[in-house]
Simulated assay, not measured.
Amino acid sequence: MSEQKQEYTADKQFVDEKFDIERSSVVLEEEENSPIPEVAAIVSNKDDPSIPVLTFRFWLMAVLFSCLLSFFNQFFWFRTHPMTISTLVIQLLSYPFGKFLARVLPAGPLNPGPFNIKEHVLVALTANCAGGTAYAVDITVIQKVYYLQDFGFGANFLLILCTQMLGYGMAGVLRRYLVYPAAMIWPSNLVQVALFNTLHKDEDLQAGQWSRFKFFCVAAVAMFFYQWIPGFLFPVVSSIAWVCWINPKNQVLSQIGGAGGLGVGAISLDWNNIVSFLGSPLIVPWWAQVNIAMGFFLIAWVMVPIAYYTNLWEAKRFPILDSGLFMQNGHSYKVKTILTADNVLDSDKYNEHGPLRITTFFALTYGIGFA
């Protein structure tokens, strides 16, 4: 009788422990789910540990796309208008490539099964980490091109590596506050997560309802054909400065409403111009767009014209919108003329040429940038 009682007690304890584990897992799952409905609807809080991740396909595509992306972005970084390949492009290219490898590679260690979402995400993450341009490269290039200073590959490599590791280290320190909490929201990443789900997850659709993948394909094709209009056929629609049409020879109107001025009232039908600064308006939250727009309006369209036309800091000697360096008389400042042969400041030449001057727009935006 006592043995049966002990067995019953042990079974009951096991059931209670199992119930507690299941209940705690449910509570944990609810806690890890984002309180923001948009995030909870897109980002899943479930994981399937049986899905293979570090496969041969992943390593092959990760190395390939990382090398190509880093080379392309760094090479075109030095253009006046840099061309940049985003992670979104890698997401689109790696998906059919992964499907192709899953079909042609022999089954086994090289091909453990269908190309899955975890492999796809890791390929995009790896390429994204390697594809960004390092700011320290600008230091080495400027020293070599403009000042003829070359400290060698080793010193330049260590400089770039140090700055990059500093950024990664700071990200690692702050991830427990900015990444791990479920309440943290990163709007640009939601788009990528939604695209991963679109490509890999099946949907229960009703008759006549479009899938997300079909909608994405239609939108991509439509955007491809439309981009030919502002890009090649009618570039004038990239910046329609209709304010200047009132009096094309008026300098003030050109400065206020022209494409090379403050652009008041200008309209652009080129998507690249629309997303060039803030990013896609479909991604950035409305409150953030309003905040940035109000700041831009106050600085660029209120403070700068007032400062310029009241001749603050002798502003009318310089262009209203320019980031260059100028002399007191408005001519471009030749920095090399005030340096010695060892690229050290020559005080006598500096006093002869006078102090550096910048435009009012550059001074205000640069100063407010530190605020």
Rank of each mutant, 00 (worst) to 15 (best):
M165L: 12
W301P: 01
S254M: 09
A171F: 02
A363I: 09
L190M: 15
V39K: 14
P37H: 09
I320C: 06
I185T: 10
I267C: 08
S25E: 09
S34F: 04
Y333C: 04
L148D: 15
G167C: 10
L88P: 01
F97L: 14
L364P: 03
G354P: 13
H200V: 06
Q255W: 07
L321H: 01
T87Y: 02
L199T: 00
T133A: 05
M327T: 12
I85E: 00
R357D: 01
L174E: 05
V284K: 10
V191P: 01
N73E: 03
N116L: 07
D204V: 11
G263N: 03
V27Q: 15
E38L: 13
V137Y: 05
K5F: 02
P106T: 06
W287E: 12
W186I: 11
C129H: 13
P281K: 14
V284D: 06
D47V: 13
Y146K: 15
K5C: 01
K46P: 00
H200L: 06
T84D: 08
Q289E: 09
P187Q: 09
M83I: 13
A241C: 04
F153Q: 15
K12W: 02
R103P: 00
Y180R: 15
V304I: 12
V344W: 00
L205V: 03
A62W: 00
G167H: 08
V121I: 11
P187D: 03
M223F: 05
L158R: 10
L345Y: 04
D47G: 05
V344C: 15
V284Y: 14
Y146I: 03
E119C: 12
V218S: 07
G231F: 00
V237L: 08
F361V: 12
D342R: 15
I139G: 02
F234D: 11
F115Q: 00
T198A: 13
I42Y: 08
N156K: 14
Q251M: 06
F78N: 12
P248Y: 02
S50N: 11
W245V: 03
I42S: 07
L262Q: 02
L122H: 05
Y135K: 10
D346Q: 07
C162V: 02
V252C: 09
E22M: 14
E203C: 12
W301N: 01
D20T: 11
V335L: 13
S239I: 01
K349R: 15
R23A: 12
L68G: 01
